[in-house]
C-alpha cells in the first residue's frame, strides 16, 4: 500500500533523510520511533507530499508521490493525517471541521457530510460537542476530532505524527483507544509515536530511526525482545524505564 524506496532528503546542506526504505502493506500497522530530530516527521510528511524529497521513490496505492504529473491534492484526500498539535481549524465548529473537506474536496452534499461527521463523532465519543469550537475542547478531545476529520474522507491509509505527545498524560489513553480500535478494524496505519504500549498491542512492525536513517525495521516481537543495534537498545531502555 505504501512503499518507500531509498528516499533521501536535504534541507539546504543538511541531509534529513538518508536512503530510507520501508513497506506498509494493506491492513498493516507500522510504528516509527526514534530520538527527536531523527527525521520521523520529515519521512511521514514525504508520504503524502507535504515535504518534497530529492532522491528515491514513494508509492501510495500504486501512485508515485514524486511524479510531477501526480495529482497531489487527490492523493492526499485519500490518505488521512493526524498531527501532533491537532490542527483543528479554530474558526470552524467541530461539525464544520469535519464536513469542510468532505464537501469541498469530495463534493459530498451537506446532508451526506453531516451524516458522516455525526457517525464518526459518535465513534470517537464526541457527538455532543458538534456545535462547539476547538478551543472549547480538551486536547484529548481535539485530537479525537482530528482523527474523525481525517476518517471522514474514507482514507485508504492513515498517517499519525506523534498524536499523543502534546497531550497531558491523563488524556493519552482516550486517544490511543481510538487508534487501537482503528488498527483492529483493519486500517493501514503508519504511526510515529513513543507509546510503546500502543506498539506492543497493535503494531505489526516497528521502525527505529536515528539521524535520518532507518536503523531497524523489524516485526515488533523481535524489535522489543532482541533489537539488533546498540542505538535501538539504548533508545528502548531509555523510553521503557521512563
Amino acid at each position: 500500500m505504501i512503499s518507500i524506496r531509498n528516499v533521501s532528503k536535504w534541507y539546504g546542506e543538511f541531509q534529513a533523510l538518508k536512503k530510507c526504505s520501508t513497506e506498509v502493506d494493506k491492513g498493516e500497522v507500522v510504528v516509527i520511533c526514534g530520538p527527536s530530530g531523527s527525521g520521523k516527521s520529515t519521512l511521514i510528511k514525504c508520504v503524502n507530499g507535504l515535504e518534497l524529497f530529492q532522491e528515491g521513490e514513494i508509492w501510495v496505492d500504486g501512485i508515485s508521490v514524486a511524479d510531477r504529473k501526480t495529482d497531489l491534492p487527490k492523493l492526499r484526500s485519500r490518505v488521512g493525517m493526524v498531527f501532533q498539535h491537532f490542527e483543528l481549524f479554530p474558526h470552524l465548529s467541530i461539525l464544520d471541521n469535519i464536513t469542510l473537506a468532505q464537501s469541498r474536496v469530495l463534493g459530498r452534499s451537506k446532508k451526506q457530510a453531516v451524516e458522516k461527521a455525526v457517525q464518526l463523532l459518535e465513534m470517537v465519543g464526541l457527538a455532543e460537542q458538534r456545535p462547539k469550537f476547538p478551543a472549547q475542547l480538551s486536547g484529548g478531545q481535539q485530537q479525537r476530532v482530528a482523527i474523525a476529520r481525517a476518517l471522514a474522507m474514507d482514507p485508504i491509509a492513515m498517517l499519525f505524527d506523534e498524536p499523543t505527545s502534546a497531550l497531558d498524560p491523563e488524556m493519552i489513553n482516550e486517544v490511543l483507544d481510538v487508534m487501537v480500535n482503528l488498527a483492529q478494524s483493519g486500517m493501514t496505519m503508519l504511526v510515529v509515536t513513543h507509546e510503546m504500549g500502543f506498539a506492543k498491542r497493535v503494531a505489526d512492525r516497528v521502525i527505529f530511526m536515528d539521524r535520518g536513517e532507518v536503523v531497524e525495521d523489524r516485526p515488533k516481537q523481535i524489535f522489543f525482545e532482541n533489537p539488533e543495534t546498540d542505538r535501538a537498545r539504548q533508545f528502548l531502555s531509555k523510553i521503557l524505564t521512563h
Binding site: K45, N48, L50, P73, K74, R76, S77, R78, V79, G80, M81, F83, H85, E87, L88, F89, L100, A101, R104, V105, L106, R149, A150, M153
Partner: peptide
C-alpha cells in the same frame, strides 16, 4: 504552517 498543512493533508488545493 501546521494549519496550512492540515488543509493540504485533507486534499484541498492551495487556493482552497
Amino acid at each position: 504552517k501546521g494549519q496550512f498543512n492540515a488543509g493540504l493533508a485533507l486534499g484541498m488545493n492551495r487556493r482552497q
